[in-house]
Design a binder for these strands. Sequence first.
DNA 1: CTAATTTCTTGATATTTATCAAGAGCTTTT
DNA 2: AAAAGCTCTTGATAAATATCAAGAAATTAG
Lengths: 190, 190
Amino acid sequence: MTELEHYINSYFGIVGSDDLQKITSLFKPSSLKKGDYFLKTGKSCDRLSFIQSGFLRIYASTSDKEVTQWISTKGYFVTDLSSLVFSSPARFSIQALTDAELYTINKADYVAIGKLIPQWYELEKLFIARCFTILEDRIFSHLSMTAEERYNFFFEHNKELFNQVPLQYIASMLGMTPETFSRIRKKSLL
Amino acid sequence: MTELEHYINSYFGIVGSDDLQKITSLFKPSSLKKGDYFLKTGKSCDRLSFIQSGFLRIYASTSDKEVTQWISTKGYFVTDLSSLVFSSPARFSIQALTDAELYTINKADYVAIGKLIPQWYELEKLFIARCFTILEDRIFSHLSMTAEERYNFFFEHNKELFNQVPLQYIASMLGMTPETFSRIRKKSLL
DNA sequence: CTAATTTCTTGATATTTATCAAGAGCTTTT
DNA sequence: AAAAGCTCTTGATAAATATCAAGAAATTAG
């Protein structure tokens, strides 16, 4: 089983191995150089990628700053879901923080999976429902935790990220300034 | 077309009118008195309800306070999605803030819709994807806006809520204390 | 390898938001 | 209508976080 098959299987559960292969064969290898854009705000997002290696930053600009919504990495999918699914203009830009290897499926093939695999929509629904739940938890963390608590929680669960991407982006996605992040970090390293 | 049919149609898009009726007929009227619980943290959530009237508060308790995740009202669905779909213990409690009329489908019937209506999972996927997008925006608001900006934005879009439920719960779901909420409110009323 | 650039840290200070405490307004109950 | 509970407001103060500015450290480019 390829790594892609392994991950898709783990996210979408029991799919027959022939179906699994049908799906993964629609994903084509591609790569990004550090700094390359996967997507720019306002464009339509016409693909979904699986990250084989590297880090991508999902962000949007406000009048006075760039806000990092998320950093995606090995083993995760990346896309602007609302743009992919509803053909709306992308709200986010997505940029490679490092060189990255992706497996990418274009929109037409993505849409075709539903015709190809009868249970696909059900599995996809379950997958998106899980993503929804993760976002609910993330909102809850902003309603109930201080910056320091969010830092500690995130650090415990994503240690590896901290020496691989600029910390300012992690600060932003946790909802604090780089300075606050740095001070909290110092405290937690003592 | 009943109100329930109207809403389901508007959320789930084109469903044949016979299918639409098949679905809505699975929802049974029920009601809650003010203060009644729709769901308690830790239990399994075995139903999905459409709110015909009234207000329900979705919240969870931390060691030192209750945090309101959301307030749901007329025209919206209410459930703990992760518990309903994955049979996990509910993370949230859901309590009626006022008397409320619901149309409720139990889990068995909810699961059965998928067998009954071929395109159901696809429509449901789209529905959950839209909910996902709303949560993404909500997270973004916590990363990019001050308490005052969140207040103003929410107020503009949900004026009617402000004289129908205790403001402390709105404060909590916007991620601020009742005192801060009250001060911002005073400012914005001048 | 050095220079240039970017990122991170630190200190001083300002602003935002939370906490605590008390009282005023509402609702509900009796 | 009075009493009892909530809920909301207000003030004083404390704590958390942001801003601004400068320099240190790390990374990238030449």
